[in-house]
Amino acid sequence: MSLETVVEDVRDEARARAEEVREAADAEADEIIAEAEEDAERIHEERLAEVETRIDQEREQTLSSAKLEAKQERLAARRDVLQDVYDDVEETIRGLDGDRRRELTEALLDATLAEFDDDETVAVYTRAEDIELLEELVAGSNAQVDGETECLGGVVAESDTSRVRVNNTFDSVLESVWDDELKHISERLFDQ
C-alpha cells in the first residue's frame, strides 16, 4: 500500500466521518427546530387561549355593565314618571273645589273627630284657603278651628286633654294610598 492510498483512505474516512457528523448535526438541528416549532406552537396556542379568555371576560364585564346601566336608567326613568304622576295627583287634589272639596273635607273631619271623646275640645287645622269651609263644618261640634297648617287640604286635629293628634290631611291620605298602591300603579303604567 502506498502512501497515497493511505492518505486517500484517511481522507475517505475523514469525509465519511465528516458526513456522519454533518448528518448527525443536521438530524440534531432538525430535532431542535422541530422541538422549537412545537414549543412555539404550544406557546402560541396558550397565548391565544389566554387572549380569547380575556376577551370573553371583558366582553362579559362590558355587557354586564351595560345591562346594569340600562336597568338603572330604566329605573330612574320610571321613578321620574312615577314622581310626575304623583305631582299630577297632588295638583289635581290641590285644585279640588266646591262640593267635591267640601264632601272630602267633611268626611275627613268626621273620621278625625270620631277619634276623640265627645266631651273633649278639639283644635282643628287646615290649609289657609279652607279655613272658612272648616269653620262651617265644625259648627255645632266639639271642635274649633285653631289655625292653619301646610297641607293640600283635609284636617289635622289635636286635643290637650288626651294628647292625641290625628292627621287626616289629603296629603296623608294620598301618601298612604300611594304607598299601598305603588306596585299596582307601577304595573299599570309599565305593563309588567
Rank of each mutant, 00 (worst) to 15 (best):
D26C: 02
D26N: 09
D26Q: 13
A27H: 05
A27I: 01
A27L: 03
A27V: 00
A27S: 02
A27Q: 02
E28F: 09
E28W: 03
A29V: 15
A29I: 12
A29Q: 01
A29M: 12
D30E: 15
D30A: 15
D30M: 13
E31H: 12
E31Q: 12
E31K: 13
I32K: 02
I32H: 05
I32N: 01
I32R: 11
I33N: 00
I33D: 00
I33Y: 00
I33R: 04
A34H: 12
A34I: 05
E35W: 03
E35A: 15
A36Y: 08
E37W: 04
E37A: 15
E37R: 14
E37H: 09
E37F: 13
E37N: 12
E38Y: 00
E38S: 09
E38F: 05
E38Q: 08
D39M: 09
D39L: 06
A40I: 03
A40P: 06
E41V: 08
E41G: 10
E41W: 09
E41T: 12
R42S: 14
R42W: 07
I43A: 11
H44D: 09
H44E: 11
H44R: 11
E45D: 10
E45T: 12
E45R: 14
E45F: 07
E45Y: 08
E45Q: 13
E45G: 02
E46L: 13
R47L: 14
R47Q: 10
R47K: 10
R47N: 08
R47G: 04
R47W: 06
L48Q: 04
L48G: 02
A49I: 13
A49E: 13
A49C: 01
E50D: 06
E50S: 04
V51E: 03
V51P: 01
V51R: 05
V51D: 01
V51Q: 02
V51K: 03
E52H: 06
E52V: 12
T53I: 06
T53R: 08
T53N: 04
R54A: 13
I55G: 00
D56Y: 08
D56T: 12
D56I: 07
D56H: 08
Q57F: 10
Q57V: 15
Q57K: 04
Q57R: 12
E58W: 11
E58N: 06
E58R: 12
E58S: 04
